[in-house]
Design a protein around this nucleic acid. Structure first.
Lengths: 246, 246
DNA sequence: CGTACGTTTGATCTTTCTCAATAATGGTGG
DNA sequence: CCACCATTATTGAGAAAGATCAAACGTACG
């Protein structure tokens, strides 16, 4: 460990999920990878691809999305620094979703074959990857609840709560407010709403003084009423309930 | 292998996901487990539990659901024979969803500690579990698209297509129609609709002669128009695109 | 300093919900 | 085998959340 490595945010995240020994971390750090800077809106993966490489997000934000035959878009996941962007294609050949950057971002590109070798020879790392994908699954279940059973105000408030907490967990969070990188159109696509309605709903939140907006930045003076409206309970994020493994 | 084992449907499913050697399968088959018969509506896992055991569904159907603070329910996953019902709690302590039976069902109950040991010592099995959870994630992404961006008719048609295909993949499917085990209330909770609207939407499908209904059974004379309405593309089910591992 | 992109706002329309009443179904005990 | 009861499904009328379409307004960046 000692000095920081480019994959440090990734290793830290995986260590939250499973007990990794020093040599596991060293093996991760030794993974051949190339750093790639991605422009805003750049695609990393497209639906139908059969990628031979995977990626870890080092800085910036990204999202996964799918589209219907009529062209409607649904954002199905948000990715923060430290996230794995490619676990899917480790063991399933065909990509079934697009992965696209939000702002400018950096990613570490690794060969899937190397990742598979690593997983095969280091059960603790494979366990961490499994735990990570189980945590992603838990988030997507909560999103299903959000889309299926909450109204626009609740959905938006929930997204804001989740983003803030995940940001905090990565150590990127600030005091009162935080940079919220998504456009309203992207928010709409994440929440199953139209941009027009997101604008109105955001206005409803600021009218109630639950958020203050300045430029692209969002301030939440008090999270309690926000969590109330969002019906937000952080258990599903599994931020500190690692289990087993040693 | 040779003679059939109680876990045979599970082993067959995992073999679709990763290359398991004979001794991997033998190790799976040797897993101490007890068979439990579950009554209709019985809960296997409740939100907030910290289970020490997991389960494989041997026969019958189940679903996972979550509820909002106001009591609205959202079904976030369907489970068919051969599915793992517990992967989540292998590495994440707290259950964040309920798992409930649909009709009468049988499950094999295993100690999570045994599963973790098995995973630790058999990378191929751990890989299969990882692949299985990635496939579950792919399904839940498609459900997000369904809830967020398709109308009631499309959602219902999509559910019918998915259920039929997954049933077929387990080898439980029949010729023309199949036993659709969910009540309309459960369908409503899976699709983010109300039971009343599910009834109307189902009527719309039968009026167009896309489905024929007899008792609880559903017949689909021709899947093509159904898939059209559903905007159904099976890639996300990853029924035959295993990769890597050997 | 202009142009593309993102946001706000209004008027109107649709889908789906809500509430409620009725009908069918299925399972159970007599 | 039948009668009963609980569960599930159907249908209607009215209400509401959010969509759609369109225009105007900001803002950021080349």
């Amino acid at each position: 460990m000692a000095e920081t490595h480019v994959l440090e945010p990734v290793i830290r995240k995986l260590r939250m999920r499973a007990l990794l020994e020093e040599d596991d971390c060293a093996a991760l750090a030794a993974l051949p990878c190339t750093i790639r800077t991605l422009q805003p809106s750049a695609y990393l993966i497209r639906e139908g691809d059969r990628p031979e490489t995977g990626a870890f997000l080092l800085s910036g934000f990204a999202f996964s999305h799918k589209t219907t035959g009529e062209g409607a878009r649904q954002i199905v996941a948000l990715h923060l620094p430290g996230d794995c962007l490619d676990l899917q294609n480790l063991f399933l050949r065909d990509a079934d979703r697009n992965v696209q950057m939000i702002g400018r971002a950096e990613a570490a590109i690794v060969a899937l074959e190397d990742m598979r070798d690593l997983a095969r020879h280091r059960p603790a790392i494979e366990a961490a990857l499994l735990a990570e994908s189980l945590a992603d699954l838990a988030i997507s279940r909560e999103w299903l609840l959000n889309l299926g059973r909450r109204d626009a105000l609740g959905r938006l408030a929930h997204l804001l709560c989740e983003f803030a907490l995940r940001l905090e967990a990565t150590g990127c969070a600030e005091q009162l407010g935080y940079e919220f990188p998504m456009t309203q159109e992207q928010v709409a696509d994440a929440l199953g709403l139209t941009p027009a309605h997101v604008s109105r709903t955001l206005k409803a939140l600021s009218d109630r003084e639950l958020v203050r907006r300045e430029k692209r930045r969002v301030y939440v003076p008090d999270w309690r009423p926000m969590r109330g409206i969002a019906d937000f309970h952080e258990r599903y994020l599994h931020l500190s309930d690692r289990v087993g493994n040693g």
